[in-house]
Design a protein around this nucleic acid. Structure first.
Lengths: 201, 201
DNA sequence: TCCGTTCAGTGATAAAGTCACATTGACCCA
DNA sequence: TGGGTCAATGTGACTTTATCACTGAACGGA
């Protein structure tokens, strides 16, 4: 169950302690791992699956910030744990996910004793930073029709999603997505059905 | 010169090594520390001053992502060093800054041997993540007139800045800033001069 | 089959971004 | 000291995106 995870790289002693004190959990799609404002209940180290992190603005609009995959450690939880503040965003499972919940004490020991673990942390942070920088640029400067088309092209057709969910992916309003999709349909690029988008080509 | 920096917390031996191998540098306002695409020349650990990090989109528009201050370590440089990719953004000095340039080897040793240093790194990452998440929300959902007014209120009047520079701070177009400022002037909230904004109240 | 609910479509209007060009102010320098 | 130059600002026209207020269509029970 822990095969191919970053924990495999630990020296024998530490690995033993890790395997004893961590709790492996399995989450179904749609499961909410945490909500904005809640406090950290442990550091999830992802073993498999995909989890999206999204935030909701004061206006009530939401946007997907980034996704976590295997070997990512939840950087938001680290921050939450360090500062004692609540989460600023929420995490929702996309694809059935397994995660090792690492207790605080073990986290500190891993940071102290394993260079590989530290590297994993830094990589997770690096990816998050990169994701967010790219997102800022997208949201600030790119056209919505281009972003929508790219999003659609990046998945396998047919795509099962509502316009509202797609709006959250892109950080815009549902009406905007509906109109742009209708326009794409008129151009023959997609065909639309309730909760489903077929991309041509 | 290194008083009150994170390096003070190091154990004697490590501190000695640090003081020998780091190079303290001083940068004047306007100095460009690095540009997009360049490769990392060392990890800056800021001792004083303020540095802004901004990125330019494919469209040619720019936006300020966040600012670094004393005790921040440049997370962008860490990522750059780890992955070997070039910088995705550029860093420009706002207020005269001093920074200790930490060589790769020392960085690794500090990570390995100083919990305080690790904590500093994590805090820097945490702040960056937080800054960027807030920025995404701002850019995606908030009205430009509100953002502009908040930005103005957060400084001491008179503010010496051009509309173009202000546009980069907010991630919008110069014309938008000019129009919104003119509107504020009509309402008596500011008075405008070339390169200067006086905020009333 | 009716009913409630979620999902999608759309007109009207406002806010923001883009393009093109006019005007203004600061400064240099002959 | 009067031009000349250039960066900074102003603005009209138009497009894109966001918001508000609905309407209608599809689905899933009861």
């Amino acid at each position: 169950m822990l095969q191919h995870s970053i924990l495999d790289t630990l020296p024998r002693e530490l690995r033993k302690e890790a395997l004893e004190s961590i709790q492996v959990m399995r989450f179904p799609p749609g499961k909410i791992l945490f909500r904005a404002g809640e406090h950290c209940q442990g550091l999830p180290l992802m073993l498999s699956g995909a989890i999206k992190v999204q935030m909701t603005g004061v206006s009530g609009n939401s946007i997907v910030l980034y996704r976590m995959g295997a070997d990512d450690i939840c950087t938001l939880s680290i921050g939450c744990l360090m500062t004692g503040y609540g989460y600023r965003a929420e995490a929702i499972v996309d694809e059935e996910a397994e995660a090792a919940m690492v207790p605080r004490g073990l986290f500190d020991r891993l940071m102290d004793q394993s260079a590989a673990f530290r590297l994993g942390i830094m990589e997770s942070y690096g990816r998050r930073l990169d994701d967010l920088m790219l997102l800022v640029e997208e949201v600030a400067f790119r056209r919505m029709d281009e972003r929508l088309e790219e999003w659609l092209q990046a998945r396998r057709s047919p795509i099962h999603i509502t316009h509202q969910e797609l709006a959250v992916e892109l950080g815009t309003a549902r009406e905007v997505v509906s109109r742009l999709l209708k326009e794409l349909e008129r151009k023959g690029r997609v065909s639309l059905a309730r909760g489903k988008i077929d991309v041509s080509g």
